[in-house]
Design a protein around this nucleic acid. Structure first.
Length: 282
DNA sequence: CGAGTGCCCTGACAGC
DNA sequence: TGCTGTCAGGGCACTC
């Protein structure tokens, strides 16, 4: 599933190719019609000013004051070659070959929409997106402040994109393992020390994953069709039942907020909770 | 308004 | 072999 490192890899490949191009046509391919591919016709005639990224969203400012926003969802792939099936959107560009950008998305969890620049009313997660993890605005104190009033499990909070942008199921598990923090720890019980470890682990795992050009489990490909190399460096995701690389304890898998969650029950201890009431049986 | 639930969607895979 | 059922999950609408 494309998360920040995968989307950043795609962005870096798209930028030199797309920047400055005029969009000659933009449209859905063979329906379905729906809000996931909205207002594409507005892009026609506008130039792509830049290829940016916020969290897992690709953001292409257009010369006419609009913005093309692309989210790859679970299975989205962008490529210059029209795919054999599940092509959802195709842009035709001016200039040298290749002149088409195809969006293939078998499961249709992705989006490709045109909005007035900065108007994210139809994209609430983008509108409320937290700081970029590799930006100086992401700090341990900011992370702590954004979770400290919540009873929800830390994993769930991190997946919400509000404390920090760009983490998905894989890198959340990896970051929490590196930080030795239990995924079920309620946000309000996170200490500043633990927040600092989560902050540092997030920065480190994402930096390393970008350098490896992401993780390919199944669908993810770069624009050039390559796979990401970080899969072999995952420490916990998909490794349940295997020994922890730090302490050799068997890694476990639980479900948190309907997401498969991998962790080490020894390295990632839940801090002792305060005294329980005797009425709390079972 | 925070938290919980269920939906979208299709390919891969297990089981019979 | 071929069918059926289950699972995977990011974002978001909906409910309480």
């Amino acid at each position: 599933m494309p998360e920040l490192p995968e989307v950043e890899t795609v962005r870096r490949e798209l930028a030199p190719w797309l920047t400055g191009r005029r969009i000659l046509s933009a449209g859905r391919v063979a329906a379905p019609v729906g809000p996931k591919y909205a207002r594409l016709e507005r892009a026609v005639g506008q130039r792509i000013v830049a290829v940016l990224r916020r969290g897992k969203f690709l953001i292409l400012p257009l010369s006419g004051g609009d913005e093309l926003v692309i989210h790859l969802g679970m299975t989205g792939v962008l490529s210059p070659e029209p795919p054999p099936d599940h092509e959802r959107v195709r842009l035709v560009l001016d200039g040298d070959e290749p002149r088409t950008l195809s969006f293939r998305d078998p499961r249709r969890f992705g989006r490709c929409v045109v909005v007035p620049r900065g108007d994210y009313r139809t994209l609430p997660t983008l509108a409320a997106l937290g700081p970029e993890p590799l930006d100086s605005s992401f700090t341990p104190a900011a992370l702590l402040a954004s979770v400290v009033r919540s009873r929800a499990p830390l994993k769930q909070l991190l997946l919400s994109q509000r404390p920090v942008a760009g983490l998905g199921n894989i890198y959340v598990d990896e970051a929490l393992w590196r930080a030795r923090v239990h995924p079920l720890l309620p946000g309000r019980r996170l200490s500043l020390e633990a927040a600092a470890r989560v902050h540092r682990a997030t920065v480190e795992v994402l930096t390393a994953a970008i350098a490896a050009r992401g993780t390919t489990l199944r669908d993810y490909r770069t624009v050039n069709g390559d796979v990401g190399a970080f899969g072999q460096r995952l420490d916990v995701y998909g490794h349940d039942g295997e020994p922890c690389r730090r302490c050799r304890r068997t890694l476990e898998r639980i479900v948190v907020g309907a997401r498969g969650t991998h962790f080490c029950p020894r390295c990632q201890r839940m801090p002792r909770s305060r005294a329980r009431h005797s009425s709390e049986v079972s």
